[in-house]
């Protein structure tokens, strides 16, 4: 069997927007957002794949689809080589233990009325994995301390509002890790935090990866962060993966014009730039627009006739380096 923990082939998530009365009266069609529109990738055991792209490109939706939190269609959607079948109760229970999500906003993802110990041990309680109160507190303490909140018992009876942003995110991580998952979708886990606190959280995530051979789907719009922590990067635009490959290669010699545009404007700390930043012209199309051809076409500086007619296939330009562009 392969060492892939997650294998996704031709994943699609389409949302149908409920049209307002006014629109119905005007006789307009129902609108569809193709949030994820045919993407394929795999993640190996212990690997970190970063998903980078602008707001609305479908990053969160991709993560949620893998965890079965939104309806999707896919040719293949495998976890440890097995089809993810959440209709089967026993499978679902096991899957929920091994695959977890960390959300962006530590302010929203914690119930303000619950104390830290209850938040952290909730997954154990829900899954009836603790026999006694003592055991619960013991495991809660362990999880908190592994997440860098020591001594754990000092945090047991605090409420989220009594914690700093960094501490809150550690509580979120402690609770995601308490079941010993092997795969975690981390959705912008540090973007709400001060740079000085970020490092601690990232180090924690890396330590947990090393100790438990965890794999991450790391969602971010910060390319330099993706470069720093991940093995591979996938660049998304309007529901499609434009380019995917080794993180060093994507940053230093990305081939897709969208990747190049992103790396061009990446701030390089301490370096003064010459002239204005080279930004892409125009705006991202409305997500409900039907786009023929390449999704990036309307903003592409090197587009040709074919680009607005045919969608470019994903090509493997070098082993492990994939690009979807007619001009590459």
């Amino acid at each position: 069997m392969s060492d892939n923990i997650v294998e996704v082939k031709d994943l699609r998530v389409h949302f149908t927007l409920k049209s307002s009365l006014a629109q119905d009266a005007a006789g307009r069609r129902k609108k569809t957002v193709k949030a994820v529109d045919g993407i394929s990738f795999e993640i190996k055991q212990g690997e970190i794949l970063s998903l980078v792209g602008e707001s609305g490109s479908g990053k969160t939706t991709t993560g949620k689809a893998i965890l079965g939190l939104v309806p999707f269609e896919a040719e293949k959607m495998l976890f440890r080589g097995e089809r993810i079948n959440l209709k089967e109760k026993e499978y679902k229970r096991k899957f929920r233990q091994s695959a977890q999500m960390i959300y962006q906003d530590p302010y929203q993802s914690l119930n303000p009325r619950n104390q830290v110990i209850d938040i952290v041990t909730e997954p154990l309680v829900v899954n009836k994995l603790v026999e006694s109160e003592e055991e619960r507190l013991e495991l809660g303490k362990e999880a908190l301390e592994r997440a860098g909140l020591t001594p754990g018992e000092d945090f047991f009876f605090r409420y989220p509002y009594e914690l700093s942003g960094g501490q809150r995110q550690r509580v979120v991580i402690a609770s995601s890790m308490i079941m010993g998952p092997s795969f975690v979708v981390a959705d912008e886990p540090v973007s709400m935090l001060d740079a000085s606190i970020r490092t601690g959280i990232l180090k924690l995530m890396m330590d947990l990866r090393r100790e438990n051979d965890l794999a991450y789907l790391f969602i971010t719009h910060d390319l330099s962060l993706a470069w720093l922590i991940s093995d591979r990067i996938a660049i998304m635009y309007l529901g499609k993966i434009m380019e995917m490959g080794d993180s060093e290669i994507i940053i230093s010699s990305g081939k897709h014009p969208y990747t190049k545009a992103l790396t061009d404007i990446m701030p390089k700390p301490g370096i003064k730039k010459e002239g204005p930043r080279k930004v892409l012209q125009g705006e991202t199309p409305d997500p409900t627009d039907v786009i023929e051809g390449c999704k990036f076409c309307s903003r592409c500086p090197i587009k040709e006739e074919i680009c607005s007619k045919e969608e470019p296939p994903m090509k493997e330009v070098e082993p492990g380096h994939f690009v979807a562009c007619h001009k590459v």
Partner: peptide
């Protein structure tokens, strides 16, 4: 605290 894209791939210090 910021990754140095021109330098080595080393975890930021914090």
């Amino acid at each position: 605290c910021f990754p140095d894209i021109k330098g080595n791939k080393r975890m930021m210090e914090g």
